[in-house]
């Protein structure tokens, strides 16, 4: 049985269609990523899944529970890490965790034990008594996650849990999520950082303008752009006859795989290491010097670029 099934989900805020017919399913034990730029509709999707507000239309099922009808029942199964740092700043980390634990029906020694374990997991045992407002961004984010895993949810839903933090905290969080997933917790993770979903998620949905424009494993998504690496040659701008370069290359490459922007020559190819020396030779034979070479492995960034013509972070 699927852990989560989302069917034709739509949400409009007035005239804005924030989410426009999104469908996907998440299997038990899977780690599922939603990747998309700011304003794509990720949080809106998450908020409907977690039952914060109902969709304009569409269906959400958690196992066989209808989330829209039996919201509270479904909410017992999940842990939610909101995009905001949803904590009481003037309370200590421990007080916050205890409060949220109680909201998830924990009490007494079970609660104490769970709070201690979670403090250990998020690496804040030493700072447990300090007020959250005295914490760094990364530490706050860790407490924010801690508050969602106290009751060991079957499904952990995280909305951009690493926004605005230092690399060390980010690594700590990614490791923690990876470990929770390997221990059997199903994960839904949204981000606009492709490295994070690439690292964490077995399957990835790409969201843009409220629509799911691609869905699959990292490998499948790379396939959609032909799994081509991007070779970027910077050309010496003293020589001005760059325009003739593409013609000299058409024998070796398909025309659609060749792009020339001023002093940059971009070539898409499956196996850059095989053709690189030939390529450079062909270019230099036209009298143009190559000043640098960059090979970019295909990634979600290029998939997004390929699908939308825009970069993820603009």
């Amino acid at each position: 049985m699927n852990m989560l099934t989302v069917g034709e989900l739509r949400k409009s805020f007035g005239v804005i269609a924030a989410v426009n017919g999104v469908s996907f399913a998440v299997e038990k034990g899977e780690s599922f990523g939603l990747l998309g730029p700011n304003g794509a509709g990720k949080s809106t999707i998450i908020n409907m899944i977690t039952g914060l507000f109902p969709p304009t239309s569409g269906a959400v099922h958690m196992k066989d529970i209808d989330v829209i009808k039996n919201t509270k029942q479904a909410q017992k199964l999940i842990g939610v890490v909101p995009q905001e740092i949803a904590l009481y700043q003037s309370m200590s980390a421990r007080e916050n965790l205890k409060f949220w634990g109680r909201m998830y029906d924990l009490s007494g020694s079970t609660l104490e034990k769970s709070v201690d374990e979670v403090l250990e997991i998020i690496g804040l045992t030493e700072r447990a008594k300090d007020k959250v407002e005295t914490f760094s961004g990364g530490m706050k984010r860790r407490v924010n996650i801690g508050a969602a895993i106290l009751h060991r949810p079957e499904l952990l839903i995280m909305d951009e849990p690493t926004v605005g933090i230092d690399p060390q905290s980010r690594n700590h969080i990614l490791e923690t999520v990876k470990r929770l997933n390997s221990e059997g917790m199903t994960i839904i993770y949204t981000s606009h950082y492709m490295e994070e979903v690439e690292y964490l998620c077995e399957r990835i949905g790409i969201i843009d303008h409220g629509e799911l424009i691609a869905l699959g494993t990292l490998h499948e998504l790379r396939e959609t752009i032909g799994d081509h690496s991007k070779i970027v040659l910077s050309l010496d701008n003293k020589t001005s006859n760059h325009e003739i370069i593409p013609q000299t290359l058409t024998g070796h490459f398909l025309e659609k795989d060749i792009q020339l922007n001023d002093n940059q020559l971009i070539i898409f190819h499956k196996d850059p290491q095989f053709i690189l020396s030939d390529l450079i030779q062909s270019v230099t034979s036209t009298g143009t010097k190559v000043t640098s070479v960059d090979i970019i492995e295909p990634n979600l960034e290029s998939v997004f670029l390929h699908l939308t013509g825009r970069s993820l972070r603009d």
């Binding site: 908020n47 977690t50 039952g51 914060l52 509270k72 909410q75 017992k76 999940i78 939610v80 909101p82 995009q83 905001e84 740092i85 949803a86 904590l87 009481y88 700043q89 949220w100 909201m103 998830y104 029906d105 508050a147």
Partner: peptide
């Protein structure tokens, strides 16, 4: 509401 704790309460099992 702005800080998010209200929303977090709303998505908790508390009625």
């Amino acid at each position: 509401r702005i800080g998010g704790t209200w929303g977090r309460l709303m998505v908790s099992p508390a009625s």
